[in-house]
Amino acid sequence: MEKKLSEFVLGESGVIKAVGGDGMIRRRLFDMGVTPGAEVVLRKRAPLGDPMEVTVRGYELTLRKSEAGNVVMEVRNA
């Protein structure tokens, strides 16, 4: 099933299918290892609901909901 990373629920995991957005945000996502094929697990949301914390390529990355909206995921069937 396809889903945006921003729509993930806690603990959900999946594989990145595509990364949208443009310019700096997109490049930054790439540089941080958010590229197609990488596995992502949603670990946590901040106390105020946003940003979120994910595990990607073995480390903890934080990004905002709006930025995560650019990342299209293939949800792993649990």
Partner: peptide, 9 residues
């Protein structure tokens, strides 16, 4: 500014 950053151990 974008907020795509590492949360270091």
């Amino acid at each position: 500014p974008p907020f795509i950053m590492e949360l270091p151990a």
